[in-house]
Design a protein around this nucleic acid. Structure first.
Lengths: 164, 164
DNA sequence: TGACTAAAGGATAAGAAAGTCCTTTAAGCG
DNA sequence: CGCTTAAAGGACTTTCTTATCCTTTAGTCA
């Protein structure tokens, strides 16, 4: 449905949106939490920086942070950043003739569905995702405080870089 | 949105649905009309035959025809024939954790959209597509009768086979 | 300044999807 | 039967997506 890079981008941005303001997160940290290959997440973060959705800082203590308030980043922006214009615009049957002349009966119904999908992506923001994710994490058995995962995270606070 | 094979399959079936009952169409004929590489359409037609959506006959005068009435073949059947279970079932973010625990806020809205899409595919039949296409062809400037395309078609009535 | 850290970015590899080619099988026709 | 036609089907190539690797650049800190 969405391309891999798009979904990775959304997840990375959501992760950043969950961090306290001012905190920077390294690529490794994001990759580990979101289970995305690190070298691949680097590439995606770079692209998101170019599209001005996040800022990056090199060197010790460096990392990434959102360039906009999380509630100003909607999913359509992210997807467009990664895929350019969505492949949702044409005839669902990828029929040249049809696209040109509007020949197939799918067009009308499809156009409506497509608009709904675009609207869906446009209204959902990274802030929404972050909020829900936080809430649902809190509901997990054992709650949020000091799961085994968090302990490991603390141990891993040694910085590891993009190359590994 | 739909995979290439799915769209080709829908178009090939629609073409067959537009033919007079009892008429067989060769792969070449379908490929030419639908602008699909011939050797590739052969493969797709074979798959559709295996899924019992069409019948085929070898030898002189052979070709393909629908195995069911066109209005009994809906698009969901076709897409499933080509892609197996749709890649629409999971979390739109392809997040393992999320899929398991229902953690992301997209789930509910996405589930609704997904159902609409499935419903859309399920209600549209190959017969519908064929009907609309015929109608719209009729509306074209010059009408249906004897466009240049048709004349070429007649000339091409020499049979050419799958190997070319 | 030099050692270290982390992002930037290009080159390349691995895998899947799309498309081609060629041989085989089966049917019709003289 | 032997020739022709057309689908069946496997092997292969191409292309695109996804992912990795490695070098470079730009910071921090002692």
């Amino acid at each position: 449905m969405l391309s891999r890079p798009s979904t990775y981008a959304i997840r990375a941005l959501t992760y950043l949106a969950m961090q306290p303001p001012g905190k920077l997160s390294g690529s490794r940290e994001i990759a580990d939490h979101e289970q995305i290959p690190n070298s691949y997440v680097c590439k995606i973060l770079l692209e998101l920086r170019r599209k001005r959705l996040l800022r990056s800082y090199k060197g010790i203590g460096g990392g990434y942070e959102l360039a906009l308030p999380a509630d100003k980043i909607n999913l359509l922006m992210v997807v467009r950043s990664m895929e350019g214009e969505l492949a949702l615009t044409e005839c669902i049957l990828q029929d040249q003739q049809c696209s040109a002349r509007g020949q197939c009966s799918l067009h009308d119904s499809w156009a409506e569905l497509r608009n709904q999908l675009l609207h869906f992506l446009e209204t959902q923001t990274v802030a929404d995702l972050a909020r829900t994710k936080k809430t649902r994490l809190g509901e997990l058995p054992g709650g949020r405080s000091q799961g085994p995962r968090d302990q490991i995270d603390q141990m891993n606070h040694l910085s590891i870089n993009c190359r590994t």
